[in-house]
Design a protein around this nucleic acid. Sequence first.
DNA 1: CGATCAATCTAATAATAATTGGATTGATTA
DNA 2: TAATCAATCCAATTATTATTAGATTGATCG
Lengths: 216, 216
Amino acid sequence: MKGTRKIKDLLYEQVARIGKVFSSPKRLELIELLCQGEKTVETLARDASISMKLTSAHLRELRGAHLVETERRGKNILYRLAGKEVADLWVHIHTLAENRLIELQMELQKIAAQPDDLVPNDRETLMKMARRGEVVVLDVRPTEEYLATHLPFARSIPIDELRQRLAELPKDRPIVAYCRGPYCLMAVDAAALLRKEGFKSAYLRGGVAEWRLAKI
Amino acid sequence: MKGTRKIKDLLYEQVARIGKVFSSPKRLELIELLCQGEKTVETLARDASISMKLTSAHLRELRGAHLVETERRGKNILYRLAGKEVADLWVHIHTLAENRLIELQMELQKIAAQPDDLVPNDRETLMKMARRGEVVVLDVRPTEEYLATHLPFARSIPIDELRQRLAELPKDRPIVAYCRGPYCLMAVDAAALLRKEGFKSAYLRGGVAEWRLAKI
DNA sequence: CGATCAATCTAATAATAATTGGATTGATTA
DNA sequence: TAATCAATCCAATTATTATTAGATTGATCG
């Protein structure tokens, strides 16, 4: 009742350290990238379109909050998330944002490749269909990310190679593309391309992190 | 692939708006208070030990992110969370913080009233015992908060009145106190007092928000 | 070993956010 | 209607953060 205030301030202060990490757009993007698997600073910088110095500074923050771990591999330093719960929190935060911020909803709607690039709504039936080969689940992320983890039954064709490798895909069954997550846009582009080429295309909004959390 | 960057920045920017709200200790405390039910600015300011102006400013941020709603009631303005998901995210964030930050773990350990003020670990058995009257679940928050929501089978004795009302409690059965959450400390104080007075006391770390989320 | 590369550290500057004081709004009460 | 109260708005002043530049570290490779 008396000296409680100082303790409380200390406790909330600590929790806010975690919150701060999620308060910068760039850091959020880095976290989403790390959800795809471990990466070097260079790769992260390139994928997030920021300088290496700035990337390094942001990663420093992440490390300070114990949300990522590092490991030296030769010349490079690999970063990875310190646990699945970090990916989970990212999903929780962006989900809340999508629920609450009309602005974000509107932006996301604009992105939708085509009104009828239908997003299969129910994961279980999608998996059932994928298992039976009634749909093709297509991972359009870079190969390394596919190798790190991917959805069950997914095939890998990185978005850059898609145009050249269209022949590998069937025209009679729907092709469901996915990428890193709802802000990645590779899957949207892939779906649009496929549709233009006469395939039955669709895409998933989420990536592996969203999928994992939904399964639990 | 081309003008993607601008869109991405916009999207992450939006999500970061939510993250920013959770990046300030004071705002976190306000959120936890709002998890207990709707409150006026004055009440929030008092409970969080900050000036009304500053409280108002922080609440403005919360409102800007659509995480709280307001309603005028006579002279006062009531604030409430805009949805359960907001409380959920608060729980998710502080849980991650407790898992990742050793500093926070240490602080929380220091608080523990007594090594043997055992926290009943399993919610279901606790509820079973409460239903049968084998334990007394005691809500030590202010009465208004108890009225807004409380745990099943809980009795209300605000911490301020506890010393005067000890006679209402049994000495033969354990008394499990709880309050707003792990950073509130009222339950710890209550448990310490009860123990000193010869009761079998314990306390829960979580409050109603933590309980709700765990049940789902 | 000297050169190169990936990444970090340090310090400086630019951009944002927190906090406080003074004036203002909307509702209530004398 | 004037006085009061709760809360907000506005502007100014302080802290904190983000970002960039320059020097430095640790590992590899010729």
